[in-house]
Simulated scan of single mutants.
Amino acid sequence: MFSKYLKLFAGIALIVGCVPLASAKTFITIGSGSTTGLYYPTAVGMAKIVNEAGIDVRANARSTGGSVFNDRAVGAGQLQMGISQNNVAYYAYNGSGVEAFKGNPIENLRGVAVLYPETIQILARKDSGIKTLSDIKGKRVYVGDIGSGTEQDVKNLLGAFDMSLDDLKTPVRGSAGSAVGLLRDGQIDAMFYTVGLGASAITEAAQTAPIDLVSVKSDKIEELNAKYPFYTEIKIPGGTYPGMDEDATAVTLKAMLVTSSDVSEDAIYQFMETVFSKNKKAFYNDIQNPNLKKYFTLDSALEGMSIPLHPGAAKFFKQHDISIKDSQMPPS
């Protein structure tokens, strides 16, 4: 009798062994930025695409202080992905540039893809007397959230004009959404915001306050570029925002998706194949960020990639015949 049951159990074990077990899910939290910017809807949209695809990856988006926070949190394992300015990611990986990274390089930070150009947009109330960036001295100015890429950009940009945050009457920090209200109510004179063109926060500001876009002179942008090669010139076309009909000259860089080397190659590859290849139509049309459809292509997804790629990203680009520079290859 015992032998009979032993054979039965062996048969059941054989059958169970032949049934594939459900694959373990990888959970990815994507750090974004303020809910009024473009990082947040971009992260939310990518997570939605992933979750609806039925793959072995689940994702969600988290609103954060922005680039500096995201890079640090990815390095510490608190986030599995994040959106970051490419210059901030470079500083994070190399332990330079930003005070939070000096002497503390985030060696496990890896690149996924460059998404779209970001622009340092400067808004000033019409009654503030601010016509050029030099006029911002002695004014009440929003300089970005604590730990954001915007804050670092403001420091670098003011430096090109031989100024610092100490030259402002009041450097104001917090969310961009709060800054819009302060600008509208006349509690600040101007605000900086590093974000993609067409951001809802700036559109709202233009609809609710008498404001102008402040241009940066080309020679100053060239001077900035000589010191910080990430920064280049861009024209903000007239009509981008309500009531702003003239072109403005501004400084731009790139927004990129970063991750950690601790995330598996397969998870990153599945994420990219799902978002950037199989569901590209949804990526372009369903995410509330017009810059993706206007600027993102696989051919340009490594332009401005400032840190080494994750192995899963390298696999993805190789399979899509995208050339990878030696400096962008994952460390061996």
Rank of each mutant, 00 (worst) to 15 (best):
G312K: 02
T297M: 00
K281S: 11
Y40T: 01
I28M: 05
G11L: 15
E246Y: 04
L253E: 14
K25A: 08
G33Q: 09
P210H: 01
N94A: 14
K220H: 15
L213M: 05
Y116K: 09
S128N: 04
P331K: 13
F283S: 07
N279E: 02
Q121I: 10
E222D: 14
L182E: 03
Y5V: 06
A199N: 10
V114E: 11
N86E: 13
G33P: 00
D162G: 10
V214H: 00
H310W: 10
N285Q: 11
V275Q: 15
S164K: 11
G138I: 11
L14E: 06
A282M: 11
K48N: 15
G312I: 04
K7G: 09
F27N: 13
D219N: 15
A282G: 01
S175L: 12
I211W: 00
L157E: 14
I122N: 03
R58W: 12
V141K: 04
T119K: 02
T150L: 07
M163R: 08
T26K: 01
T194A: 15
M81Q: 08
D321E: 14
D266P: 01
A176M: 08
V251S: 05
G196E: 00
P331A: 15
I287V: 13
L309Q: 07
N156T: 04
S277H: 15
L197A: 03
I120L: 15
E118I: 14
G111M: 03
D189Q: 10
I307M: 05
V98W: 12
A22H: 08
K217W: 01
G149V: 08
F276A: 10
P41H: 04
V44H: 00
K137G: 01
G45K: 01
G147Q: 02
G82Y: 10
V216D: 01
S327F: 13
A89S: 15
Y142F: 15
G174Y: 13
T42M: 06
T240R: 12
K227I: 07
P237E: 07
L14N: 01
R125D: 07
A179T: 07
K293Q: 15
K315P: 02
I130T: 05
V57T: 02
A199D: 12
P242Y: 08
T42Y: 04
S178A: 15
K280A: 11
R58A: 13
N285A: 04
G174S: 09
R125A: 06
F316T: 07
M191E: 06
T170H: 06
L157P: 10
P41F: 06
A76F: 14
N225I: 09
A226L: 07
A250M: 09
F27C: 07
V141R: 11
P229K: 09
E223L: 10
T42S: 14
S215P: 09
K281H: 03
K227N: 04
I307Q: 02
K318W: 07
V88R: 03
I106A: 03
L257V: 10
G186W: 12
V57R: 02
A43I: 06
I322D: 04
S327D: 12
L224K: 03
A313D: 09
T42P: 09
L123P: 01
A24E: 06
G31Y: 06
G97I: 08
L168V: 05
V154Q: 04
Q187V: 03
E223C: 00
E273M: 11
K131F: 10
A89Y: 05
V195T: 13
S261D: 14
A160I: 03
P290A: 02
I287G: 03
T203G: 00
K278V: 00
M81D: 06
A92R: 11
Y284E: 14
